[in-house]
Amino acid sequence: MKQLRSILEGIGSAIFLMLRSASFVGTIPSQFARVIEQCYLIGYTTLPIVAILCFFVGSVLALQAGYSMQDFQAQQFIGSLVGLSMARELGPMMVSILLAGRVGSAVTAELASMKVYQEVDALVTMNISPERILVLPRLVAVLVMMPVLTIIANLVGWYGGAVVCRYTGFIAIGPESYFAAVRHVVKFKDVFDGMVKAEVFGFAVVLVCCNIGLNTRGGPREIGASVTRAVVASLILILVLDYFVTKVLI
């Protein structure tokens, strides 16, 4: 009962946080530098890990599909399978999970320590809204960066699949045939749907992480607990939202 109440409290406070942040949308141009900084942290620094992870996700997908399909001699469909899976599901999902692990934890830790060390209280005292300078730039940055990360994730994943198909003995599908299959099945709508998904996931992850960070109570030990909670909540939220967003987009 207590847990249910804390979950409902979390949802409610996150919504209020979003609304309060939205009320400062007009201040975005004046804090452009902050947005750029967050873009750098969220997008640019996350790129290498996204690229590595998605390359291997695509590779493993192609490998498993090839292994399963060799019984049916259906290897020419690997491109379609990897292409569609990466564009519609795995690309946005992997980027969001990495965002939760790498950026979400950092955001929560930063905001929780600011909260614990009363920097947030100081901002409030100075009549500077923490939503305006701490939350809004991050939300804007994540909305800007998620499509970029997602398209890179998709392309790298497709490329990983192509490499595996080319150099695996029992698949032996050339890049031309592989990408022809990708192009035949994957429409831009699929990629677009994936980017919409990534936007939703990224926004939710950053919002939840900011919310948990700002709601941290107690001493420095609570910072670690908040980070753990934020990452777990983000991962669960990604998977739950995934179902509903997919349902809406289909």
Binding site: P147, V148, N154
Partner: peptide
């Protein structure tokens, strides 16, 4: 980085649709 991402989106869009 952002421009690169948008360029990739455009290239994908052109080649797929």
């Amino acid at each position: 980085f952002f421009l690169l991402g948008m360029a990739l989106v455009w290239v994908t869009y052109e080649s797929l649709s």
